[in-house]
Amino acid sequence: MSVRPEEITVVPRGPEPGGKGGAYRAFGETLRGLRTTMSQMFTKPVTIQYPEEKTPVYPRFRGRHRLHRFEDTGLEKCVGCSLCAAACPAQCIRVVAAENDPENRVSAGERYAAVYEINLARCIFCGYCELACPFDAITMGHDYEMADYNRSDLIFTKEMLLAEPIERAPLRREGE
């Protein structure tokens, strides 16, 4: 089958490599690169003296999770519905619910999370749990310093997640 001329696309090619022209061009490009390098040499360095200094994070940064309480009643927002566990693609959340004792409420609903554990060794910080939660009980915090010596220490329990975290990561300022 013959090719019709309108079907042909012409791909323009650069000059052949090699020869004198090539050498000049390479030298010119190197100079252009060096200009960038030189100009950076006199700006402030971006390197941070971690851990003395911390990288500031954006407000929507997805760090270590936090569980929340209602400010007025102090009850836990989490009702132990397990939706976060269902949404979690890394399957690192374990919820065991129990029935509230009306005299001694833990959460506002009929049920509460008797066990709430996140295995941060497996968490991929996708934030799906936060999205799934119908009560805004779990949110992703800003803490990203979670290294530890034991894998089992990376399983965060409900008490640890509810506790007011030591805010170590500074927030990035507006426009920064």
Binding site: G80, S82, A85, A86, V95, V96, A97, A98, E99, R111
Partner: peptide
Amino acid sequence: YRFRARPWD
């Protein structure tokens, strides 16, 4: 069985 588990557990 009340509140013991969800179908995905």
